[in-house]
Design a binder for these strands. Sequence first.
DNA 1: CATAACTGTCGAACCGGTTCGACGATAACG
DNA 2: CGTTATCGTCGAACCGGTTCGACAGTTATG
Lengths: 343, 343
Amino acid sequence: MATIGDVAREAGVSRSTASYALSGKRPISEEVRLRVLAAAEALAYTPNAGARALATSQTKVLGLLAQFHEDEFAPAMMQYILGVTDTARDLGYDTLLVTEADGARALRRITDSRMVDGVVLMNIAQEDSRLPILRAAPQPGALVGLPGDCSGLDVFDLDFEEAGRGMVDHLHRLGHRELILVSQPEHVVERGGAYVWRLRDAALERARQLGVTLHAVYGASRQPAVGRLLNALLDAHPSATGLLINNEAAAAALPSVTYERGLRVPEDLSVIGRYSAEFAATFSLPYSFIESAPDRLGAMAVRQLVRRVESAAARSEPFVVRFISPELVSRGSTAPPKAPPVR
Amino acid sequence: MATIGDVAREAGVSRSTASYALSGKRPISEEVRLRVLAAAEALAYTPNAGARALATSQTKVLGLLAQFHEDEFAPAMMQYILGVTDTARDLGYDTLLVTEADGARALRRITDSRMVDGVVLMNIAQEDSRLPILRAAPQPGALVGLPGDCSGLDVFDLDFEEAGRGMVDHLHRLGHRELILVSQPEHVVERGGAYVWRLRDAALERARQLGVTLHAVYGASRQPAVGRLLNALLDAHPSATGLLINNEAAAAALPSVTYERGLRVPEDLSVIGRYSAEFAATFSLPYSFIESAPDRLGAMAVRQLVRRVESAAARSEPFVVRFISPELVSRGSTAPPKAPPVR
DNA sequence: CATAACTGTCGAACCGGTTCGACGATAACG
DNA sequence: CGTTATCGTCGAACCGGTTCGACAGTTATG
């Protein structure tokens, strides 16, 4: 494999001249520049990444820490990952994907060893053991997901509070007065998945303000448990006219449940979900939903991260916490309730 | 950040001694060894990955090239990726995930620059433009998927021929004499997805041998097209008693189709799929299926790759093409056909 | 016309590890 | 007791880039 020394020799110049000719960081005569370029081309020269990293302290690699929990919906993760890898590549970076269970140790490994120029963290927990390590690391970091303490980091997330309020508002405007909210399973919450209660608490608060009854429950993550749960809920609250779903598995299971019960959507039951457009397409879900835009979030995180990586000025800017406003994608699964709410 | 020079100074020894004390590659007195270890601990020393890579020509990183096509089923990919990243980590390697559309260029970039010690390729096409590059690369490579030309590479895949034969045999034994096979969409084939016709041609051949009628058709990749297609097929072949599905989207769509048509499985229709257990669980599919074991394939590829990376002897061993034998996971979705086949 | 500024190139140092050869001290050997 | 291994350590070189300072030659400036 050719080194820059080989290129220099082939072009009849010194190593430093070859380097400058290739990088353009100093003026080099047109004639020499072309000779060096030709030599590099002829020898199929590619700089050695390790050597360059050593000399420049830049690896052009970003770390991506993702965690996979058995009980969470793995396919959804793919969208986030693609948002990150594709955007990173556009900006000239490769992506080191780390899925180790012990995220804190993995983070320490890749930052201390200088394998990466920056890190994106996903599956953020309320109290996330990786955050102190990331704050202390020499590389900048960005989070996809909102932790309890955002200090010292750039944070990107869907505005789950607004999503919760939006769902309730929407159905209230149509005349609904009794709703059910199915959240993620309880262990997601126990693990620190704050987005679950952020949406739920905001929805409950808004419902209270509007005088709407809202039954908020934890869901399950798998069939057949989640199907049974949905049936039990509809049995338990026969007068509820609207269903809010912040749980992928429940959304995927709902069509068969309504079908079996002979419920028509939206005539008998209005439904709003919260998931990604990709997810909706994959499962061909017929419900209006609040788009969680995983690819956009991943892309935003990477762009901000790269800004900080590449500019000392950007590195000293104040940290941002940026929420994507929820957008309701209408699929016609909501309508005024059949029986006017006289209660 | 502490370097090995800092550790050496702190321990009062030379840099080389510190290096030997940490690596154990030369005998070092117990006393000095402990001093060095203590110094390293105190300074939170972690070797610089770039410097180590430069000195040893080993990065302890594997490349993983995956391609995402709009019309393929993205969630399934996640399983392969996890199989690779988890196994790599167990063996001491991190994973560089590359999802670039131009896979050949990406492959050249990461191999020429020596960012990785080896490469795993996924989504292998019959004529795959990445293969010549991988063969010429200085790093070893492993494929998950069978290309037209396997020379010079280790290849791992499900035995799709055997899977096709197994499906036909199974239903033939139960007494079925007319079957339908739904494959992936035609453009997957056009793109070089050989596994589609490997399964189909083997199934057709076996059906011919057994005197079974087999209607083999391309499927669609999305709803509602795939649902319409299933309905059209069942309309067109009312006497068919068994359905073989080599198409994730079709498998996911089938329950609602049978439900709407009032078909009972297996009483009115026997069904066998080909997908992963994880997929079956996610969509809670009630069908017997041939397990495609993506995580196992990813793990096998990585293990072989690492063997070649780490041992010169292994590097000169002959290349392997290894097929996982299909395993039928029974979910009770097949039974003898209702009307005995008198035709 | 002397001086300053600029242009284009080179040599040397550096990034942070690993590894080879040498060397003094100690132990084993005949 | 002299010779040879062995042990433990050090200095130096190397991996393959980048970058700083110097310098010769040319052009602009006062």
